[in-house]
Computed example of a mutant assay.
Amino acid sequence: MTLRFEADGVVLDIEGTTSSTGFVTDVLYPYSRKRFATLLAERGGEPDVARAVAQVRELLDAPEADLATIERALGGWLDEDRKVTPLKTLQGVIWSEGFARGDLVSHFYPDVVPVLRRWHREGLRLHVYSSGSVAAQLAWFGHTPDGDLRGLVDAFFDTENAGPKTAADSYRAITAATGLPAGRTLFLSDRPSELDAAREAGWLTVGLVRPGEPYSAQGTGDHPRADTFDEIDITTEKETP
């Protein structure tokens, strides 16, 4: 079945939507875990790292926490798959360098990239909103098996510059930043709680259900469902009354 929408822009989740969550947890998470200690010890004076360390101490309510304590906290959050901003910031730093060195190449489901290119050609404005940091998103889209896809995307949003993905105000903040009408912005995600928040902010929604993804058993609630991007048809032209 084809889902049809009138929209000016699409906002994309990554894990479970454009890309495999398993790739992130099985490849990227271990890669960052091995490098937290070195990053904290050798680059603590860099602004992004220093800010993240301060945020970890604040979350732990331990302003004097040493680097070993911070590393343990990061590892614990990683085990729990917590969407914690300082964890995502530090992972973004590590992953960006891993992608740049060629250690890492991102994953996209095979239906995604051709559709994103077509939507871009047709004038749809594409944005990304992920719990991973903007730095990680840029690295992800910049180092794919299909080349550098960053030129397809107008803007990237994360939990730091937009807010939590289950809060309607985060989607309102993205609406303000993009200038697109909420009612003509389509959000694609695999998590019903995120889709609920986007709809509360006035957005259009589609839930992606990919086999084997962590949220696939939940379905999409009362949101339209698609199994691939090929099932979504978008026109940018408004219907004439």
Results as ranks from 00 to 15, higher is better:
G9K: 00
T144L: 13
I174L: 13
D48C: 06
P214A: 04
E237P: 01
E46V: 04
P214I: 04
R35M: 02
G179K: 09
D111F: 10
W203N: 05
D111H: 05
L28T: 01
M1S: 14
L59S: 13
P30A: 11
T228S: 15
F99S: 00
G221E: 00
G212S: 06
K88S: 02
P114A: 12
V134N: 09
A155Q: 12
S106A: 15
E160R: 11
V206D: 03
H107Y: 08
G45T: 08
F36Y: 15
A54G: 14
L126W: 06
E58I: 02
R33C: 09
I234S: 08
T17I: 06
L204P: 02
E237R: 14
G151L: 07
A168T: 03
E71S: 07
G202H: 06
G132W: 07
R121T: 12
G179W: 09
D146N: 10
T159E: 13
E213Q: 13
V93F: 12
K238S: 15
G151I: 05
L152I: 01
D146F: 10
T89N: 06
E97I: 05
P214N: 02
R43T: 10
S20P: 02
L60K: 07
T17D: 03
Q218Y: 10
T166Q: 13
Y129F: 15
Q55K: 12
D230L: 13
E42W: 05
D48N: 04
A62R: 09
H127S: 15
G92K: 01
S216T: 14
G221A: 10
H143K: 01
L90N: 00
L149Q: 06
L40H: 04
A198L: 07
K34M: 13
G98W: 09
T185A: 13
R121G: 15
F99V: 03
D148T: 00
W140P: 01
D146Y: 06
T236D: 11
L149N: 03
L204H: 01
L208W: 04
R191D: 09
Y109A: 03
